[in-house]
């Protein structure tokens, strides 16, 4: 099972890589509005890479259900329990 902090750390790497920005700080409440360059296209790339890293597939419905980074982290941690 994954810990929240390990998921945040992996996500920070993915965001930094896709957005080419080393100053990314992710919190539970972070949304696309808070981060430069996080738009619909980079969102897809972030979701694809997150899926690869955690060996998950996100359906469109799941992606739409994430309202902030906290939702995404909770989803990944939850999946790792099964």
């Amino acid at each position: 099972m994954l810990t929240e902090s390990s998921v945040y750390s992996a996500l920070t790497d993915i965001f930094s890589d896709v957005l080419d920005n080393d100053n990314i700080v992710l919190t539970r409440d972070t949304t696309a509005k808070d981060i430069d360059g996080w738009d619909s296209l980079t969102n897809i790339q972030i979701m694809l890479r997150t899926g690869q890293v955690f060996k998950l597939h996100f359906s469109a419905g799941q992606i739409q259900s994430f309202h902030n980074v906290g939702d995404l982290v909770a989803f990944i941690v939850d999946k790792s329990k099964s």
């Binding site: 619909s40 897809i44 979701m47 694809l48 597939h57 469109a60």
Partner: peptide, 9 residues
């Protein structure tokens, strides 16, 4: 199909 639907890739 997922990526086409989401982002028209």
């Amino acid at each position: 199909p997922a990526q086409w639907n989401l982002a028209k890739l």
